[in-house]
Nucleic acid binder design. Structure first.
Lengths: 339, 339
DNA sequence: GTGAAAGCGCTAACAG
DNA sequence: CTGTTAGCGCTTTCAC
């Protein structure tokens, strides 16, 4: 055994066993915290582990346990989007933060267009124990089928939750949008308009219906609705169309901050000012809004928390713990200077 | 062998061998593209692989090859920073995009403060073949020592590159800042000031020295320098201090966009306007600047490309290909409305 | 060119 | 409680 100990390479379980004068099985038990090991032996083994600075080999462990201790995070292809949307970074952060305290590893996969097939192969190839799919804005659940083979948790409500068997965590878009519109009304604005998000995305749909619902609740109505694609330019366009209608507008609810910022410029172009002439409230609370002039009143969504929950959920699923199918997170109105 | 084929589980190399009527060794050779396999046999095997939808088991492969085919991406702890700095998201994206075409997997590790020890353990525990460390703004290379044991590539020049043996890719901060200041001068501004970044971070240092150097080149000088910490509020503070000096200023170069945006508000507070009274140019070209009013003239740094290069570098290092120690990326002046 | 055999480091029955 | 015995799925000499 002396020969083995002298090896400068990474220490193996066997070396620890030799060092501690026990069998590999015992070392394995200690490493895995098995209860059936006498305290003293455990101590000896622990010492040997420390001394040798032993770290279990993941590959070997995976091979036999059929578990990879890895979780994939699939981010939609649209390279540009990941780059422009601070939301993703926040979610990833939440996930990583949660996983930090577990034995799981986070494998990032950014879908590069046509490589979707490759991604599937990877996910189904036994490379990970579970997958997290962020489809927040798109509601695209083309990975739904995967969940039959692999635990999958989505970020954002599926567009069509057929079967209702998808696990996901989402933000309460409807309620959040309601508080936004309520705020506008509470501050005395009555001629409201909205820049809605794409109507094929859950957040787009929910935030718009909340607009109408809240108006209705106060005996108001509005057909001043223009749709954008969540980008700043689209927000500006939508605002111009709204203004072009010639009807009076004193408050606008934009389905996200980026579009709200776009609206700012259109409003200024028209010689109007925020919030004196038109109050604006957005949704998301990303840095587009917080650093704008004037700082944007908006609805904050707990992105980091969302990531954390997704991670918690997938781990629970992997380890066969009971997990709620859907988790809905609350939003919070952040009042700044635009409304 | 019939029994084995009927298994619904993941197909193994052995099953493919049986299906193709060859030995496992041969299948392995085909899978790994070994040249010494007759074309016809290779075809048969390929067919079997297709038919069974075989995907090699990573763990098993790693176990014997001593390679994990995984690369870690270590992002500094400061949770807030990752969230606020679009730069990170872009770099991660670049890395993921490059790796997409390789057989490597990206393991994201966000350092949660004290867990640094855990991270080291993970990196040294043979879990990855190499590591990418993003220390862009901080220049913190506390992982330098690791590179003696594991291939490591840094994002951003080390604060002190002792030994000069660190591999890293960086952006040409000095040259970039020069173009910014040149632009200011070219547009007729002569009373220049700068909001510098922290002087314990390479970008902070380089961008400031470029400011002085460019001024000098044109026979100008300026002691109108205030330091910020790269955040919007710090930019506002710095601008106020600059203004409070009472000396005339008609152009300011901010070491990054976030501080430039902060400066905007301080300038407005003072009843001045951008760019009429004071021209402003930033650095980074993130969405803080592009969506501001007026849109910020700035120096774009190729963040995605930086990630791509880092990935390329680490893979090269892992596979023992000759790799340049340092890669410096060029920047580009983006002229918008603020200067 | 192709097959046989020997593990890689670890866990999991199964005996004692 | 602890040791023995088999492999997990794959690569890789070493013969043929």
């Amino acid at each position: 055994m002396a020969e083995k100990l002298r090896s400068g390479a990474m220490p193996t379980l066997e070396m620890v066993a030799a060092q501690a004068g026990v069998s590999r099985a015992t070392v394995s038990r200690v490493v895995n915290g098995s209860p059936k090991v006498s305290a003293d032996v455990a101590t000896i083994v622990q010492a040997a582990i420390e001394e040798l600075n032993y770290v279990p080999n993941r590959a070997a462990r995976s091979l036999v346990s059929r578990k990879t201790q890895a979780i994939a995070m699939v981010v939609p292809e649209s390279a540009a989007k990941v780059f422009d949307d601070p939301f993703f970074a926040a979610v990833v952060q939440g996930v990583a933060l949660y996983l930090e305290d577990t034995d799981y590893t986070l494998n990032m996969i950014i879908e590069s267009g046509a490589a979707s097939h490759k991604t599937r192969r990877y996910l189904l190839g036994g490379n990970v124990d579970g997958a997290l799919v962020v489809s927040h804005h798109t509601g695209d659940h083309s990975y739904s089928e995967l969940s039959r083979t692999l635990p999958v948790v989505f970020g954002g409500r599926p567009l069509s939750d057929v079967g209702g068997d998808n696990y996901y965590v989402d933000v309460d878009n409807f309620a959040g949008a309601c508080t936004a519109v309520e705020h506008l009304i509470a501050s005395g604005r009555t001629k409201l308009a909205t820049i809605a998000g794409p109507q094929d995305m859950p957040p787009g749909v929910d935030r718009l219906s909340a607009f109408h619902a809240t108006l209705g609740k106060h005996g108001l109505t509005s057909d001043l609705v223009e749709v954008g694609d969540f980008s700043p330019p689209s927000g500006a366009e939508a605002m111009r169309r709204l203004l072009a209608r010639g009807e009076p507008i004193d408050g606008i609810f934009a389905a996200n901050d980026q579009m709200a910022i776009g609206a700012y410029s259109a409003i200024r172009e028209a010689g109007l000012s925020v919030p004196a002439d038109i109050a604006v409230v957005g949704f998301d609370d990303d840095n587009y809004g917080s650093t704008a002039t004037p700082p944007l009143t908006t609805v904050r969504q707990p992105s980091v928390e969302m990531g954390r929950r997704m991670a918690e959920m997938i781990v629970g699923l992997i380890e066969n713990r009971p997990v709620d199918t859907v988790t809905t997170l609350d939003t919070e109105l952040v009042i700044r200077d635009s409304a």
